[in-house]
Design a protein around this nucleic acid. Structure first.
Length: 432
DNA sequence: CTTGCCTGCCC
DNA sequence: ATTCTGC
DNA sequence: GCAGAATGGGCAGGCAAG
């Protein structure tokens, strides 16, 4: 498959803002794609090269990509900057530069770019490291752009800087996958009626792998993708509500209030093969938190579980909780890990349990998950792992006190959580 | 060796 | 994280 | 109400340059 085919599809997508139309453009693309290529096509359309937890980074942003473009098009940095200003973004500027004096001129003997070539080149860019790697990354991108027609160049550049701006993202791609491979040809349904693919994606957020499976095997391909220790579950998120009446309307008269800790979210997976930690955005952060790994190992031996925590730096002498800024010193840390563990000691407030010893708890009501969590934590004993502070509420009007209490405890506020019917864990959605 | 740009990811 | 837009 | 894009503050690491 030519990359230009993909680029033309992207152009079509940009031409409309109607979501159903966008979805159908993607459906046509997917149905016309060799199954073998579906993983790569979907990753590129997402603007990635693999699942988030694999941590591939291109390591090129606006500045460095600009250098590659200027070199390839044979224009000065200043000229390129002027073009960006005129055209609106770096992708369009590249297209314009290539169209007027593009490298197409030297292209008589080259084959046009394929999806494979683009994907593999970008993967190479992501893999380079060490001294001289910046230069090498730029050169690799330059070589790729050298063979690109103007339209392809627009989207390659946007992919690398991480701003495809197609008007579509995860949800639309998932719906398109569903329609392309699970619906009969020409079938029409209410949008989002089944959401089989999305449901799988929520517990196995690797769209390339899912696309490949569903393109090759249809619905049966989805069988192998259930919730699994070691694979992150998409986080359920909170939305901001301004007032008690709003909370009442959203949650009904009975709900739970919980401290909203000013820390960093960690999804912990413990199992027979060790501990895995993931960030809210499904990045692997295991090696950055050896203290957390150790705490999990000693608290949850012989257990298989997926739990969610808010990690907060505290003062062990006073028990005082410290603000987000403190825990942010630990994010991304590779050097001086032992010192940072000392300097920024963590408390881990457990607030949800998604999986326990072969049992999926995602679909259970909040009370049940909370009970299971507390009983699991009961076995953990003393230590940095604690249950989040929670209050079952009969009368939400009385939430003001709890709010003030949370603020006094060093928290950002409170979170209202629905209970009872419909209070399952809504992975990937805003529901708290 | 130190400094500062650049990138990526947390909120 | 928040804010804005279009459907 | 949802999906997507754009934007902000702040931190650490990797690398290039001095």
């Amino acid at each position: 498959m030519k990359y230009l085919t993909l680029a033309e599809t992207y152009q079509d997508l940009q031409a409309t803002s109607k979501r159903l139309e966008m979805r159908d453009i993607l459906v046509d693309l997917f149905r016309g794609t060799e199954p073998r290529l579906m993983g790569r096509v979907v990753y590129l359309t997402q603007g990635t090269l693999g699942p988030d937890w694999e941590g591939l980074q291109l390591g090129l942003g606006e500045k460095l990509v600009s250098r590659a473009i200027a070199l390839t098009a044979g224009i000065s940095d200043d000229d390129l900057e002027a073009l960006v200003h005129r055209e609106g973004d770096l992708g369009l500027a590249t297209e314009a530069a290539f169209a007027s004096k593009g490298p197409k001129q030297v292209q008589l003997f080259q084959e046009s770019l394929t999806v494979d070539r683009v994907f593999e080149s970008l993967t190479m860019v992501a893999r380079v490291e060490g001294s001289g790697s910046t230069e090498k990354r730029i050169r690799l991108l330059q070589q790729l752009l050298m063979d690109a027609d103007p339209l392809s160049a627009r989207y390659i550049v946007r992919t690398v800087v991480g701003k495809l701006r197609l008007g579509i993202a995860d949800m639309t791609i998932l719906e398109a996958l569903e329609k392309a491979f699970l619906w009969a040809e020409d079938e029409e349904r209410v949008m989002g009626s089944d959401k089989v693919v999305e449901t799988i994606y929520n517990v196995h957020p690797d769209m390339g792998a899912i696309a490949l499976a569903v393109a090759n095997e249809g619905a049966e391909g989805l069988a192998g993708f259930g919730i699994q220790v070691g694979v992150p579950v998409r986080s359920m998120l909170a939305e901001r509500l301004g007032s008690t009446p709003e909370i009442l309307e959203k949650m009904g008269d009975r709900c739970a209030f919980e401290y909203k800790y000013d820390g960093m979210r960690i999804q912990a997976h413990v199992g027979l093969e060790g501990v895995h930690l993931f960030s809210r955005r499904m990045e692997t952060i295991t090696s950055q938190f050896p203290d957390v790994v150790q705490a999990m190992e000693s608290a949850f031996a012989d257990v298989e579980a997926i739990m969610e925590f808010e990690a907060v730096v505290h003062n062990p002498e006073t028990g005082e909780l410290l603000p987000f800024q403190e825990v942010s010193h630990r994010r991304g840390r590779v050097h001086g890990l032992a010192e940072s563990v000392e300097d920024y000691p963590l408390v881990l407030f457990a607030f949800d349990l998604l999986y326990l010893d072969g049992e999926e708890l995602l679909l259970q009501e909040f009370q049940l998950r909370r009970e299971a969590l507390e009983s699991l934590l009961g076995k953990a004993g003393e230590g940095p792992i604690r249950p989040s502070t929670l209050r079952w509420v009969e009368d939400p009007e009385g939430g003001d006190d709890f709010f003030l209490e949370a603020i006094a405890a060093g928290c950002e506020g409170i979170i209202a959580k629905a209970i009872g019917e419909g209070s399952h864990y809504r992975a990937g959605a805003r529901g708290w």
